[in-house]
Amino acid sequence: MHASPAHSIGGFRGAVLKYIRVVQWSAAGDSVHLDMLGEDQEIHRFDVGSECAGILAAALASESQKLHLAGKEQQLIRPASMQTARNEQGEPMIILTLKGGAELPLVFKTESLGVLISELQGLMRSVEPGSQIRWN
């Protein structure tokens, strides 16, 4: 993964810059390109190689849970479509296809499918008219 910042902060290339919004993303060749708005109000481009894009997405999702983001505005992932499949090892998957055609594969242990199905059924019940959402 490498970044192409618009400029360095204070002339020091090792400075840390917080990115506050994904402006757009696309895929080309074997990389995912992310254009992100930084605290400096500049757009910065990141190119993430296909070999680490999936784990980067999972790591970001996992670590963001530790930040106690309740009440903060968050950007949401809205898949354009989804399908089920099995990977080469026979593990069940759900493949979320994002706008632009990028795919986000979610792999599950076979024994966890019952829990996944139960959670999805609960979600279906919670979106029915007159229902209330209960957060665990």
Rank of each mutant, 00 (worst) to 15 (best):
Q65P: 06
R86H: 10
F46D: 00
R13G: 06
S64G: 05
V48T: 04
E103M: 00
A80P: 00
Q74G: 03
S126N: 14
E51R: 09
R45D: 10
S8C: 09
A80E: 15
N136L: 14
A80Y: 12
K72F: 15
L34D: 01
L106R: 02
E111K: 09
F12C: 13
I20W: 10
A61N: 09
P92C: 07
G29V: 03
I20Q: 09
S81D: 11
R134T: 13
L69W: 06
A15E: 15
L76V: 05
A3P: 05
P105T: 02
E128C: 07
T97Q: 14
I77T: 13
V22M: 13
G114N: 13
L106A: 05
V127M: 10
L67S: 02
R134F: 06
W135I: 13
F46C: 00
I117Q: 15
M124T: 13
L37N: 05
V115D: 15
P92T: 09
L76A: 10
A59N: 01
S26E: 12
I117S: 07
I95K: 07
R125T: 06
V32F: 09
G14N: 11
L56Q: 03
C52D: 09
L96T: 04
P105M: 10
V115A: 15
L106D: 02
E51C: 01
L37D: 08
I43Y: 11
A57I: 10
R78L: 10
E128T: 03
V115T: 11
E73C: 09
E111C: 06
S4P: 01
L113Y: 08
I133R: 15
K72C: 08
Q74P: 02
D30V: 09
L17T: 15
I9E: 12
F108H: 07
R78K: 15
G29D: 09
M36D: 01
L98I: 02
Q24D: 14
G49M: 09
W25T: 00
G114P: 11
G10M: 08
L98T: 08
A27L: 05
S118R: 13
A3V: 14
Q65G: 10
Y19F: 15
H7N: 12
G90R: 00
M1H: 03
K99Q: 12
A102F: 14
L17A: 11
Q132H: 14
G122E: 15
G71E: 05
P129W: 02
P79S: 12
K109Y: 07
S4L: 06
Y19H: 05
G38W: 01
E103K: 04
A58C: 08
E39T: 05
K72V: 02
S50Q: 04
L123W: 07
M82D: 14
A27W: 04
D35F: 01
L120A: 02
P5T: 01
G54C: 09
L120I: 13
S118F: 04
H2K: 15
S26K: 09
G11R: 04
E51L: 03
A28P: 03
E63D: 12
G114M: 10
L120K: 06
G71M: 04
S31N: 13
S131D: 00
A15R: 15
V22T: 11
I55M: 07
G101T: 00
G38N: 04
T110I: 06
L37T: 09
D30Y: 05
T84H: 03
H7F: 04
R13Q: 11
P79R: 02
A27K: 08
E111M: 03
R125S: 14
I94S: 07
E73A: 12
P92S: 07
S26M: 10
